[in-house]
Design a protein around this nucleic acid. Sequence first.
DNA 1: CGAAACCTTGATATACTTCAAGTTGAGTGG
DNA 2: CCACTCAACTTGAAGTATATCAAGGTTTCG
Lengths: 238, 238
Amino acid sequence: MTGKKKMSIDCFHCMSRKQSLMGTLKDEELACMNEHKSSVNYKKGQTLFYEGTRPMGLFCINGGKVKVFKMGSQGKEQIIRLAKPGEFLGYRALLGEEFYAASATVIEDANICFIPKFDFLEILNRNPNFYKNIVQSICHELGVLEDRFSDLAQKSVRERLAANLLMLKESYGMEGDDSTLIDIALSREDLANIVGTATETVIRLLSEFKKDGLILFEGKRIRVLDAKALAKEADFYA
Amino acid sequence: MTGKKKMSIDCFHCMSRKQSLMGTLKDEELACMNEHKSSVNYKKGQTLFYEGTRPMGLFCINGGKVKVFKMGSQGKEQIIRLAKPGEFLGYRALLGEEFYAASATVIEDANICFIPKFDFLEILNRNPNFYKNIVQSICHELGVLEDRFSDLAQKSVRERLAANLLMLKESYGMEGDDSTLIDIALSREDLANIVGTATETVIRLLSEFKKDGLILFEGKRIRVLDAKALAKEADFYA
DNA sequence: CGAAACCTTGATATACTTCAAGTTGAGTGG
DNA sequence: CCACTCAACTTGAAGTATATCAAGGTTTCG
């Protein structure tokens, strides 16, 4: 039943499965996924899908990192979300039966599986719990975006940068001992496009935070030295 | 089967049902809703639910208008969404099994039905099509918010005000002949809290738009005179 | 009728953007 | 391995959109 794949790991042994929404899939369903999926290696800069196109299936990140963004009228990207191993991409458009509202581009070399729309929907229909988890996840995402929307409208750039650094630390902090190092290689421009500001402004504010001992640069990565002070900068207690 | 209610219209005769997501409900399910719902009249300024509380059921707007907003740390509201007759409120939190992420307050006297969580979920489980429609609606909302998020980050206040006026015209323009009149009584402060700016700035920009013949004030309402020019101001073609 | 909420206009301050120029760093080919 | 190139990063100076503060006018409503 479980056909051997040459190049790619099968879903049963996929490292990122456990943390993903696939946790609730039964063996049979996982086998179905496994048979219909294809796995591709992407280089940094390659694009998974473009805003305005029709979704053909679901992306599942096995390794690497991806940014999801919209293009503004002056050609400036606004990053809506980052995705890491274990996360799905494209299910909003799939379930909403709409075109992609944003584009997705790889920011760290990635291995990503693709499950055709039909097979994904099949599994969804056969497994109410899986469906329920996906719906919950979408609802949660909507709530998170409402938060960020509100912050974007009301907080200063400095506050937003601080808040986003903390958020990044939560999502991309390394395991255990080194949890203060934000393990994602974002360019200053990407960071600016997350925060919603100009690249130069991010650079200036980062160097202020550094001067004040709140953060530190380690290569292309940022280490959070004083999370509490950052939270204060972010106006989390006010 | 269809028990008579004294004060409130039953769901079968509800004027707002047709435009709502309930369109797909079967008679039997509608009867179930009808039996378990309660209907309340709210005055402007009254609150349906508060951010951070646990959702107990679904709100369904029969008449009137509601704003959904988050409170910022300086006590300034950020309006996430407006809701009008036929629309549901609170289903994101319900399906996501989370607390409310925002508060909801009546801005025009309203008549609103409430379906307890249990009964709503029952109906949802019994009617896959209904469920599917709700999910689609949430997905769509997420897409819309992504758009607005991106605009908030990249457009100027002037552009956003213009864009929001057009959006309001689409949603609250009157039927047929008078489609250019935005039929919702928003205070300048509310409008500012939609656009994400200061009240004074909205006032100044509105009076500029008026001076330039793009809009007109009719009582507390705004009429859009030149939608095309507004779209230009909103940077829709750029 | 009076108080409170809402609206408007003006003056001032500033956080942030934009433009410009220089530096560093990464990747490529000879 | 070095030189070359292009992109990413950084700092400075100047301009501006927008927030903030203040005060007066207007509507609403009990």
